[in-house]
């Protein structure tokens, strides 16, 4: 059985266009306010006047995050009903029928993954398009990306190629939940820190 699965995200190539986000919403019929995949814009820097010129010292990059189907998923640990569970193939899924909508997983997840659906009162989340992946196809977000910045593969393989330990701002320490997320860094990630950068599009990613 293939898996456990992980995403490969090329932050250097991501333009922030959100085709991945839209494709996911269409694939799963998501309401406004429910974002199984979110694209965070990270920006910082300043402007200086040099004689008659404006000189920027500005940087920006994007992070497209769905669910990282972590190896030590804290959402599963804290879920009181057992609705959130990790499958043998490594995918973390939530059973809507069991979920009582307490939102504890949303508090705990450092990636903003669990999304509360107002209509049903339950938590929902990225499923890695398990049906498609099981049938040999790519998740919707991966297939959609016009820059080909998203890919997926077996965790071990991605770890060997690009590592699973990206921890630049604003990512949390990967040792906390051991996410299945491999990132090719943008050249500016080294410049981003809690005092030097911010998520610039908070209102677009649920706050």
């Amino acid at each position: 059985m293939p898996g456990p699965w992980a995403f490969l995200f090329d932050a250097a190539a991501c333009s922030g266009c959100k085709a991945c986000q839209a494709a996911c919403k269409d694939r799963h019929g998501l309401a406004v306010g429910v974002l199984w995949r979110r694209v965070y814009e990270v920006a910082g820097g300043s402007w200086a006047r040099e004689r008659d010129a404006w000189v920027p010292d500005v940087f920006a990059f994007n992070l497209s995050i769905g669910c990282n189907h972590c190896e030590a998923p804290i959402c599963v640990e804290v879920c009181p009903t057992g609705a959130m569970r990790r499958r043998p193939d490594g995918l973390v899924v939530v059973d809507a029928d069991t979920c009582i909508g307490c939102r504890y997983c949303a508090w705990a997840c450092p990636y903003g993954t669990p999304q509360f659906d107002d209509a049903s009162g339950r938590m929902t989340k990225c499923t890695f398009c398990a049906d498609d992946v099981d049938a040999g196809r790519a998740p919707a977000c991966v297939a959609a990306c016009p820059m080909r910045a998203l890919d997926f593969g077996e965790r071990a393989a991605l770890e060997a190629r690009h590592g699973l330990d990206a921890s630049f701002f604003p990512l949390p320490d990967p040792s906390l939940t051991r996410p299945g997320l491999s990132i090719v860094p943008h050249r500016d990630v080294g410049r981003a820190g809690p005092r030097t950068a911010a998520v610039a599009n908070r209102e677009e990613v649920g706050g």
């Binding site: 979920c99 009582i100 307490c102 939102r103 049903s120």
Partner: peptide
Amino acid sequence: HLGAPASALRAVRN
């Protein structure tokens, strides 16, 4: 606080 208050007692399952 729950989205599905009627099923609150499921919360002891983990």
